[in-house]
Design a protein around this nucleic acid. Structure first.
Lengths: 218, 218
DNA sequence: TCCCGAACCTACCGCCGAGTAGGCTACGGG
DNA sequence: CCCGTAGCCTACTCGGCGGTAGGTTCGGGA
């Protein structure tokens, strides 16, 4: 077992700090995602990263700091992916649609990132939630902007326009939950999941007008 | 601090085993829900239960066994709550509706139970998932039965009737995610959350017929 | 009344994993 | 060529928590 050098980052010598930090974060995301925060050991992370434990402490700090750094990096990547998917020259509805698809494409491609971002971070209390809250708020702001454009272009009335922020918050929450659910059902195509959520927005925007919606009779 | 006897089960002496087990499970659900599986210490559970640690090991076994016992008990309670909500004399749609409401009412009232059932159990791998899988399958079977009744009563065509099981699975998954999301948004009324999910079923049942649905043009 | 077993406890063990002390080595500037 | 410092490691300490040994007390049946 000790003979096999495995396929880890080739334990090269004397790499610049920047590169090492990247390797460590990659390893940490992977291990946190697989075992959860508490089951993940610093020893295993250092092993996967191909680096000794004190290096992690020297570069990224204690376990909590390391986890927070993971969340921060992945959250930034996610937001950039979404923002990149929204092409400003498209009509408003299409901007929203492509933003959604970019989101789900990210989750599908970076399952480990999403797992550590949402599932792990959410099940730990404390300082980790703050990092998530920050990302959520940025996401809600972005979605709200898209919704406003979409609503005004469709000529919805004042009351609907006023409640876009609430709808944006609901959308983001629904997206998180849906993505989380999707982790366990990878067979569903990304486009389908995205369109489900898009339908919810549709119903949300047209809630007052639409008569085809089911309403409890009692 | 040591003076205050708190409001825990009054550390009475010589109670029958049945009662002690119940107290221990209550404490365990609470502590697991608050701190998560790994942060929860057997010492704290024993303290909250008003019982010494060896009693837990004598009655419920090791930490994993205790956690599994929590999941099993809460899952059973949940299923009973749902089944109790479905009143057989109602029309099929209404049975589904009341089942949904019973589900969300349970989650709303027993937040700790749901937290330990879903969030904690799902973020731990291993034997815990099995307990969840068992409950899920029971739930899917139940929902499927309700869907079939609902579909036939509305006279949907053969293809729709064939895919009820897939729809049931999706519904259960959506319900789990939605309930999980609801934990973080307690201000939304239970009836509203339930009706959202009901709308999804509506759209799922009528997917071929309905023209009001948003579809991507590209 | 006596005694047996169930209920219950205190006080301990040992492992595992977070975090550290202290030092070695190679690259680059002078 | 030399030495300062950034990169890197081995080999520990130590505390917390899962788990247990070995009792003591009470209730109830014979």
């Amino acid at each position: 077992m000790s003979v096999d050098e495995r396929s880890r980052p080739t334990r090269a010598k004397r790499l610049p700090r920047e590169v090492r930090e990247r390797q460590i974060l990659d390893a940490a995301v992977r291990v946190f995602s697989q075992h959860g925060y508490h089951n993940a050991s610093m020893d295993e992370i250092s092993d996967v990263a191909g680096v000794s434990k004190p290096m992690i402490y020297a570069y990224l700090g204690h376990k909590e700091d390391l986890f927070a750094a993971c969340i921060r990096r992945e959250a930034t990547l996610l937001m950039e992916a979404i923002a990149g998917g929204v092409r400003a020259e498209l009509p408003p509805d299409m901007q929203l649609w492509h933003g959604l698809r970019a989101f789900f494409r990210f989750v599908g491609a970076q399952r480990e990132s999403w797992r550590v971002l949402h599932r792990q971070a959410i099940s730990q209390g404390g300082p980790f939630s703050d990092e998530l809250l920050a990302m959520r708020n940025r996401a809600i702001t972005l979605v709200d902007a898209l919704l406003v454009r979409s609503a005004t272009s469709r000529g919805l009335d004042e009351t609907a326009r006023k409640s876009t922020e609430a709808l944006a918050a609901a959308l983001v929450g629904a997206g998180e939950s849906l993505a989380d659910w999707w982790l366990d059902h990878p067979d569903v195509p990304e486009k389908v999941v995205a369109s489900w959520l898009m339908n919810l927005v549709w119903m949300g925007l047209g809630d007052l007008v639409d008569g085809s919606v089911w309403t409890p009779s009692e």
